[in-house]
């Protein structure tokens, strides 16, 4: 994609394709009458860990759904690695190196944990036997080990505790070999030590594999030590942006949380 007619002109202060690895500009998503995401613009820098926070119903998951291609946005643009990806379906985003987890899990109940994680390792081809090869399984086992599921690979998802399901979601996203990872509430329902162990894994992903992370969570105590920067939204609109310290002391953010969301 060369000349991008959706990109703003040079002199504009609007965000453009090259302002980050992931950029959204005036992103809007409406469901019937409700505007879930309202002209939201922000950029994610390569290899940063960005917190994406806001009260319940603020539009965080909807933003993820637009970025990852589950829903087409009503308006606005999304650029990933400099290219306009606004209307790409999820599987194409994955092929470009973006993966995500879901807030409500999407396990494949009919197969083991190992086979759940092996799914992204299967080529997107109609005629293939690669999934049957030991190499594929070995890779899947490597991912299981990475997310701490190596002792539960042969269980089915419904035998996993909640924390295990979170790890399964994470593992399946990681198996796509992403450069950027969107995590929707990876700490929900976890104990403090579990939050810490997931945080360590995420930091390792960034420091050793150069993965960029955008993390949604309501657990501020767990999230703030992890992130470099946070973007706060409310009613689908950008409310604040800054370092954890700046966000913590921002009166608007305090009010948004104390005053509740919708």
């Amino acid at each position: 994609m060369s000349a991008d007619q959706d990109a703003p002109p040079e002199w504009s202060d609007e965000l453009g394709p090259n302002d980050g690895i992931l950029v959204m500009s005036e992103l809007t998503k409406q469901f019937g009458g409700i505007t879930a995401v309202d002209e939201l613009s922000f950029a994610v820098q390569e290899e940063e860990i960005l917190g994406f926070i806001g009260p319940n119903g603020a539009g965080k998951s909807t933003t993820f759904n637009c970025i990852s291609g589950i829903y087409p946005p009503t308006d606005g643009n999304i650029w990933y690695k400099g290219e306009n990806v606004t209307d790409l379906p999820p599987y194409k985003m994955v092929k470009r190196g973006m993966a995500r987890t879901f807030q409500s899990f999407r396990p494949l109940e009919d197969r083991t944990v190992l086979q759940n994680i092996a799914l992204p390792l299967v080529p997107d081809k109609l005629f293939s036997l690669a999934g049957l090869r030991g190499e594929t399984i070995k890779k899947a086992e490597g991912v299981c080990e990475l997310v701490g599921l190596d002792d539960r690979m042969d269980m089915t998802p419904d035998e996993l505790p909640h924390a295990g399901m979170l790890r399964l979601e994470l593992g399946r996203a990681l198996a796509t070999n992403p450069d950027l990872l969107l995590l929707d509430e990876p700490f929900a329902g976890l104990s403090d030590p579990e939050v810490e162990s997931i945080s360590d894994l995420l930091k390792q992903l960034r420091s050793e594999a150069g993965v960029t992370l955008v993390v949604v969570d309501h657990n501020m105590r767990g999230l703030f030590p992890l992130i470099d920067r946070a973007v706060v939204i409310r009613f689908g609109e950008l409310l604040a942006e800054g370092t954890p310290e700046e966000i913590r002391s921002d009166p608007m953010v305090k009010e948004a949380y104390l005053g509740g969301g919708n």
């Binding site: 589950i70 379906p89 995500r100 494949l108 009919d110 799914l119 399946r172």
Partner: peptide, 18 residues
């Protein structure tokens, strides 16, 4: 395997790059 994965969760298949 992908057929049955679609039955279980189409989102999961899509998010697996398929």
């Amino acid at each position: 395997r992908i057929f049955t994965a679609i039955r279980e969760s189409e989102d999961a298949v899509n998010s697996a790059g398929l």
